[in-house]
Amino acid sequence: MNVTIQLNGEPYSIEDGLRLEVLLERLALRPARVAVEINQEVIPKVDYPRTVLHHGDRVEIINFVGGG
C-alpha cells in the first residue's frame, strides 16, 4: 500500500513500512555521506536497516556542502 511521506520538504510516495536503508538505496545515496532525521529525531546510522517509514513521516536527509 502506497503512503506519502514528506521528504526534504516535498511529498514523496513510498510503500508503507519501507525500510530507511532501502529508501537511501533507491535515492542512490551513500549512508556514509548523509545523515537522516525523521520527525525531528536524528536516526543513528546503525539503525538504518531496522528503521521503517510510515504515512506522514517528515524525513530530512542532509549532506555536507561548501560553506564558511
Binding site: 521528504l7 526534504n8 545515496l29 536527509i61 556542502v65
Partner: peptide, 9 residues
C-alpha cells in the same frame, strides 16, 4: 568548514 544542507533528491 562545511555547511549542512538537504541532499538534492
Amino acid at each position: 568548514t562545511v555547511s549542512v544542507r538537504r541532499v538534492n533528491i
